[in-house]
Measured scan of single mutants.
Amino acid sequence: DNLVIALHSYEPSHDGDLGFEKGEQLRILEQSGEWWKAQSLTTGQEGFIPFNFVAKA
Rank of each mutant, 00 (worst) to 15 (best):
V54M: 03
A38P: 01
Q25I: 15
I49Y: 02
S13M: 15
V4A: 08
W35K: 13
L41Q: 05
F20Q: 00
G33H: 05
G47K: 00
T42P: 03
V4M: 12
G44W: 07
Y10M: 04
G19H: 08
T42C: 09
I28E: 02
S9R: 12
V4Q: 05
E11W: 14
Q45G: 07
K22V: 09
G33P: 03
Q45H: 10
F53R: 05
K22M: 08
F48T: 07
I49V: 09
F51G: 12
G23R: 01
Q45E: 13
S32E: 12
S32T: 13
G44A: 06
G44R: 06
I5K: 03
K56C: 13
I28R: 00
S9Y: 06
L7N: 04
E24C: 04
D17K: 09
G47E: 01
E34T: 13
V4C: 07
L29W: 04
K56H: 14
S13V: 15
Q31W: 12
A55M: 12
P12N: 04
W35Y: 10
T43Y: 01
W35F: 11
L26S: 00
G16W: 15
G16A: 07
V54D: 02
L41F: 05
L29E: 02
E34K: 14
K56G: 11
F51Y: 13
F20M: 05
I5S: 04
S32D: 12
E11F: 14
D1V: 10
L3F: 11
Y10V: 05
G19R: 12
W36V: 10
L7S: 04
F53Y: 14
W36Q: 00
F48L: 11
L3W: 08
E24Q: 07
N52T: 11
E11S: 13
D1R: 07
F51D: 06
N2K: 09
S40Q: 04
G33L: 02
D1N: 11
G19D: 02
L41S: 03
L18T: 01
I5G: 01
Q25R: 13
S13T: 14
D17H: 15
N52I: 08
W35A: 06
L41C: 11
R27N: 06
K56W: 15
G19E: 05
L41I: 10
A57E: 13
G47L: 04
N2F: 15
E46W: 11
S32G: 12
D1E: 13
A38H: 00
K22N: 03
W35T: 07
G23K: 00
P12I: 06
A38Y: 03
Q31A: 14
Q45D: 10
L29M: 07
V54W: 03
P12W: 06
F20T: 01
K37R: 14
